[in-house]
């Protein structure tokens, strides 16, 4: 078993963090994982993506040709990565910023208005956790509780219970919509 997930969007959307939380949850559940960021001279608003591999044996390539799951947080990343998704794979698409319709019949595309949901929750920056919640459901491999625990570890926000609570809620909302 080896599952590749690509998170893509623009810098500032929390793309790298969402991937890191997934990788950490995978590790905590005993899987082998890799997390590979796109790194470069980027700035806020530039492109950002990361690749997470979750496997039951040591991961070879941290680069994924065709991911089982694509998380596309904006239009350009949807256009760039949707053609690469493996047949029968899933695209978790942020309909708040993606106007295109489903481009492929052989994959499942979930349109979720992540920005609006995050706005509803009172924390626009937690759209990434809405995306991650939906991803975890689509993945069907990791318990949501493990992902929540990993998120709390990753944010390391002791004493910032309000922040953790809104991110937990975002994960739950995303999970319930997938």
């Amino acid at each position: 078993m080896e599952i590749g997930v690509i998170f893509a969007g623009f810098g500032g959307q929390g793309i790298l963090l969402a991937g890191k939380v997934l990788a950490r949850a995978g590790m905590d559940q005993g899987f082998e994982v890799t997390w590979l960021p796109s790194y470069g001279p980027e700035m806020r608003g530039g492109t950002a993506n990361c690749t997470v591999v979750i496997a039951d044996e040591p991961v070879g390539s941290p680069i994924v040709d065709s991911p089982q799951i694509l998380v596309a947080m904006n239009g350009p990343s949807f256009e760039r990565f949707a053609p690469k998704v493996a047949p029968k794979g899933t695209i978790v698409a942020n309909s708040s910023l993606i106007s295109q319709g489903a481009s492929r019949g052989d994959v499942r595309t979930l349109f979720i208005p992540m920005n609006e949901i995050a706005q509803d929750l009172g924390e626009p920056r937690c759209a990434n956790m809405v995306a991650l919640g939906a991803t975890v459901k689509a993945l069907g491999l990791l318990p949501l509780a493990a992902v929540i625990a990993a998120m709390e570890e990753e944010l390391g926000a002791r004493g910032r219970e309000k922040l953790l609570a809104v991110n937990r809620e975002a994960l739950l909302r995303g999970y319930s919509l997938a």
Partner: peptide
């Protein structure tokens, strides 16, 4: 190399 330097793994 840059990939090994940047990537995370357990």
């Amino acid at each position: 190399d840059g990939m090994l330097g940047q990537m995370m793994e357990p």
